[in-house]
Design a protein around this nucleic acid. Structure first.
Length: 783
RNA sequence: GGGCCCAUGGUCUAGCGGUUAUGACGUUUCCUUCACAUGGAAAAGGCCGGGAGUUCGAAUCUCCCUGGGCCCACCA
């Protein structure tokens, strides 16, 4: 029987990346597919398809993926058939921006077809790196069914789900003031906006009152929108302006008459207490225009320049230039009362960091507001791990508005709509194929439902990239394509993701999947915390504090990294990167390696050992081990790796190695004990070690595989096993405290007397430990 | 303004009503044949942010305060 592992473990005293690589060489790689005809219980997962955006993949993300992998692995060890998909998200603005930067080109001045090709090349490179990294960390997903959100197949799926929702009237076309990013040249959703405190000037401008010498002073940060002013509001309780309510003011330069109206949202203490309402300076303006039925006048075009409504003086100027021009015009006329520097919380695009403009755009919207109650119900029925994070979703469901899904961009799934040349009625094709309306004709059967026309022009827009990823749960479970698989795997057992994309990926997934399938996409949602830098600050590219995990894994080993990720913080909490703790994890694995070497050196266990053949010390550790199994397994059941990782480390490092292994070493060597007694020790050591390896396998797949193969041969993998059953535990395991206390006492005594730990000593063994006397005498060399 | 989370030895962290508060890193001292010096052993170091309350009993529950972090809304 030569199934040894070439002894590659014996040569090493520490656990590191090199041995991990050797382990893969010796043991090979396992494939983890999903067998839909299996009788095992199904455990299905909906995992985040990582976005190929060109960033170095940051440590927090890799830590999260290693935990997601541990979920899959532990679930297999519970005896489930696990659907563990892997995909790469490749659509949308980030890759377009990456491509523009890489080739120093601009998307809109590049041929669309050519630009798409460049994006694809860039993506292929990025994808390679990401897959290599997933492979490095031992990600045990089904790579044979790797999906890409920009494949013809996936895009056809995205389009098919859109068409289904279109036919169900969940989607409508509407023109409404939208968040428009001048930098990206497209409408974006509320979820894509972030805020930044930018310095700005608050300009106080005098308006004349109609038919009077009096003036009213308004304060604004957007003087260039003067020509869009439709009303002035003042607080009804503001004595300074009370008598002006109902009067008309004249907008300077533009000579427009606007009414002065009372409104609670005008704060007397801010600025001059009088506000001009324009289309559209901010979101509040949008609400006021709607509530007061004001007539909008749009001054900014989609290039961020002033249009003809703004008047000849500033026509064609960029917003910022128009602003200074208007201010100087007003100054010349003596209408600027004063100007203050203010810090203004400005909405900006999360991709391009450009301040957004609010411009009415015709876009497609997916209805979510009408669905609020049902979404809330679903949110309440999904089990959140940890439960606190559900609140973030609920808060967002409450405030979210309908989702604008169309983007004026190139690299994304095309909106499958054509418009009748005659009457402009939209034509939506049947689902099932991948449509590219910007360059292809509609199906030959296409006929305008309104006028019977046969000639069409295609919509040239794409979808928001969340339209693709929001149906990942349906895609991986075979919705609409594989009924058998779908029945088995949907709703998905668990969605895994980070807390940072609850408003986007989680929210949109619930909206889309539930509207399409009629029920919640998942039973559980596992929400991991964010990776922070060593100072507890969120890692981000702009702050330059992103930690690259690859060199760390090379230095300390992947298993050390995975163990660190599992043991660093309880589920859902943010975790700070700490190199010293990573090093600490490596030390633990080194401990486990060396302990295992000792046990293997003592020989193979004799299998016909029964519980009654064990000596008291053996029964004691069996009891301790049983308690470990119980705790670790319950942690795995909760998908919380903090519990098993810490519990295992504590057991191995503080109980099993220093107390039990030290105590029975002499017996296991056979020094002064009978064969039967020796065998009991060898058996127990092996039994507990095997159990520890099984319990550690989901978190540290490499070291457990290597050590397992040392005693079981390379023919069988630890990753094909199930968790150990609860062992027998007698009251005896309560002796642990007494034992630890006694050992410490002996060690301290020897130290006090300047003795070596091996020197013999005369010391009384306490009554409660009398039954372990033989082992203790051998351990401490007690006379 | 609304919501969520956090505050425990030098640093990070466990703790979910009950005897001398967990562990890691760091620090000090001692110990190298026989698994491991990236090791072992011993030790120092905390009135569990402040205040009030509930309780026989609070790091743990409630309220207030202070100081952090995050999310949402609003900011002309």
């Amino acid at each position: 029987m030569d199934d040894s592992t070439d002894g590659f473990l014996a040569q090493s005293k520490i656990w590191n990346r090199d041995i991990e690589k050797k382990t893969i060489e010796v043991m090979g790689k396992r494939a983890y597919g999903f067998d839909k005809s299996s009788d095992l219980n199904t455990f299905s997962m909906d995992t985040p398809p990582p976005y190929a955006s060109g960033r170095p993949w940051h440590l927090g993300a890799v830590a999260q993926y290693s935990q997601i992998d541990a979920i899959a692995r532990s679930s297999r060890m519970f005896g489930n058939q696990v659907l563990f998909p892997v995909g790469i998200d490749r659509n949308g603005i980030p890759v377009e921006r990456y491509t523009e930067k890489k080739y120093n080109i601009s998307m809109r001045s590049t041929d669309r077809e050519k630009f798409l090709g460049m994006c694809r090349t860039a993506l292929d490179d990025l994808e390679k790196e990401m897959l290599a990294l997933l492979d490095t960390i031992g990600y045990s997903a089904d790579f044979s069914r790797l999906y890409r959100t920009d494949s013809d197949d996936y895009r056809a799926f995205t389009q098919a789900t859109f068409i289904q929702q279109w036919n169900a009237k969940n989607i409508y076309k509407g023109t409404r003031p939208s968040n428009y990013c001048v930098g990206c040249g497209t409408t974006i959703a509320d979820a894509e906006i972030e805020y930044s405190d930018l310095s700005s000037k608050l300009t106080y401008i005098r308006f004349k009152l109609k038919g009077s010498d009096k003036t009213i002073t308004i304060a604004t940060t957007r003087p260039e929108l003067l020509g869009a002013c439709a009303a002035i509001m003042v607080n009804p309780n503001d004595d300074r302006h009370k008598e002006m309510i109902g009067k008309k003011a004249i907008v300077p330069i533009y000579d427009l008459e606007v009414e002065i109206i009372p409104h609670e949202s005008a704060k007397p203490e801010f600025g001059s207490g009088a506000v001009m309402i324009c289309s559209y300076g901010d979101y509040n303006d949008v609400l006021l225009f709607r509530d007061l039925s004001l007539k909008e006048r749009i001054l900014v075009d989609t290039f961020g320049k002033m249009n003809e409504n703004a008047g000849n003086e500033i026509l064609g100027l960029k917003v910022k230039d128009a602003r200074s021009k208007i201010v100087s015009m007003l100054e010349e006329s003596g209408l600027v009362e004063k100007s203050e520097d203010v810090s203004h919380r400005t909405p900006i695009c999360e991709r391009s960091k450009t301040p957004i403009e609010i411009i009415p755009m015709e876009e497609y919207f997916l209805k979510t507001v009408d669905d609020k109650e049902r979404l809330m119900e679903i949110a309440k029925n999904i089990e959140f791990i940890p439960y606190q994070h559900r609140q973030i979703l609920i808060n967002w469901i409450n405030v979210a508005s309908d989702w604008p899904i169309s983007r004026r961009r190139f690299y994304g799934t095309e909106i499958p709509i054509w418009y009748c040349d005659k009457c402009s009625e939209p034509y939506v094709p049947p689902p099932g194929k991948y449509y590219k309306p910007w360059k292809e004709a509609p199906p030959s059967s296409a006929t305008c439902s309104s006028c019977g026309g046969k000639s069409f022009r295609g919509d040239d827009r794409t979808f928001d990239t969340w339209m693709d990823s929001s149906v990942s749960a349906l895609y991986v479970s075979g919705y609409g394509r594989d009924e058998e698989l779908f029945k088995k795997t949907y709703p998905i057992t668990v969605r895994t993701q980070g807390v940072d994309i609850i408003r986007t990926w989680m929210y949109y997934s619930i909206v889309r999947c539930s509207q399409l399938s009629g029920n919640a996409p998942w039973k559980k949602a596992w929400v991991g915390g964010m990776g922070l830098d060593e100072h507890g600050v969120k890692m981000s590219k702009s702050k330059g504090n992103v930690v690259d995990p690859s060199p760390l894994m090379d230095r300390y080993g992947v298993d050390a990294f995975r163990f660190w990720a599992a043991s660093e913080a309880s589920i859902g909490s943010n975790f700070s990167y700490s190199e010293s703790k990573l090093a600490g994890s490596q030390k633990f694995l080194t401990k486990l390696l060396n302990l295992s070497k000792l046990i293997h050196a003592l020989g193979k266990p004799v299998h016909d050992i029964g519980y009654d053949d064990l000596m008291p010390a053996d029964k004691w550790i069996m009891g301790e081990f049983s308690a470990l199994v119980k705790d670790a397994v319950s942690g795995y059941k909760e998908l919380n790796f903090f519990i098993p990782s810490n519990r295992i480390r504590n057991f191995v490092w503080s109980v099993f190695a220093p107390h039990y292994a030290e105590m029975v070493k002499a017996r296991a060597y056979g020094n002064g004990f009978s064969d039967k007694q020796k065998n009991a020790a060898v058996y127990t050591l092996n039994h507990v070690l095997d159990g520890v390896l099984l319990l550690t396998a989901p978190i540290c797949p490499f070291i457990t595989e290597a050590l397992w193969s040392e005693s079981h041969g390379t023919g069988e993998s630890v990753h094909s096993k199930t968790f150990p059953a609860l062992g027998r535990s007698e009251e005896r395991y309560m002796l642990g405290d007494a034992l630890v206390k006694f050992n410490s006492m002996v060690w301290a005594e020897k130290k006090d007397k300047g003795m070596s730990l091996r020197d013999s000593i005369s010391i009384a063994i306490p009554d409660e430990l009398k039954e372990m006397s033989d082992d203790l005498r051998a351990m401490h060399n007690i006379k």
